[in-house]
Amino acid sequence: MISPRRHAVFLLACFLLVPDAHAWGPDGHRIVAELAQRHLSPAAEAQVERLLAPEHTCRLADVATWADDIQDDPAQQSLWKATRSLHYINFRDRQCHYEPPRDCPDGHCVVGALDHYVAVLGDRHQSDEARREALKFVVHFVGDVHQPLHAGYRDDKGGNTYQVQFEGKGSNLHRVWDSGLLRSRALAWQDYARQLDARGPVALPPASAAPYAAWAEESCRLTRDIYPDGHTIGAPYVQAELPLAERRLREAGRRLAALLNRTLG
């Protein structure tokens, strides 16, 4: 069992980490959550409903952005500061090989965060409040680790300092991947999720003994090829990269459903 004291130490240690990079935009996170919701087992769905009932919802999409939203809640500032650096991982080179002591010291990265909060979520000795918070973090962090620029190796803060022109405006590569690519479809997130789900199950590589690290390594390897030639992003880039972004959403949704079915079922 993970003790409250260990949980507090885990959070406080995160104050020492570097500033965060934001995640998929709200639509991306809600799409991942909705894709997972559609494939929950009856047992897992019942547990999700029970845990979320005090927040007057029963759907994962309604809490998918909570881990980002707390930055704007004055009452949640200590939690935001303690967890803001758990949304990503910094690899050291393009080989993208995960080495915990180097890339995630003391578990302080998105891989370590998933290890921690999945354990809390699955621990029936924890309070419902602790497990509800863990559920919200897990839903969000599974989305984060599938956003390629949340697991990069370049010295540009996950593309945040890589300036680009997109749709005639100044932006950065991270923001384009967070929301710009998805916004180009001009779909409400609910319709987008329905369309992606209608494509059927996405093919996944064989399961790993360390799945969260494997997902991060996948994202890192993808960043090798998603930087544009130059700093202007036009229609050819969107046409080439949007299918990859959509595939990562589908992979995240399928994996989140499997994780929750296993942990809560």
Results as ranks from 00 to 15, higher is better:
V9K: 08
N90C: 13
A75G: 05
A240D: 05
H146F: 14
L249N: 10
P100L: 02
H174Q: 07
R5E: 15
K136R: 15
L12E: 07
H39P: 01
L256H: 03
G143A: 13
L51Q: 10
S41T: 15
E99Y: 01
V202S: 05
L249T: 13
A8R: 08
S179K: 08
R92F: 14
V63H: 09
L196V: 03
A33I: 15
A245P: 00
A214C: 14
E251H: 12
N90G: 08
A64W: 09
A82D: 11
P42V: 02
P236W: 03
C96W: 11
E34L: 12
W189K: 01
G180A: 13
D155G: 08
H116C: 03
V164D: 08
D155H: 09
A258I: 01
R185K: 12
W189L: 06
A67G: 07
K169V: 05
I70W: 00
H29F: 01
A13Y: 13
A209S: 15
C14S: 15
E99G: 07
D106N: 07
R254S: 13
G25C: 03
F91Q: 15
A186G: 05
F141G: 02
D72Y: 14
K157A: 06
L187M: 10
L264K: 14
A36M: 14
A67P: 09
P243V: 04
L204Q: 11
E55H: 10
G180Q: 08
E246C: 05
D103G: 07
I226W: 12
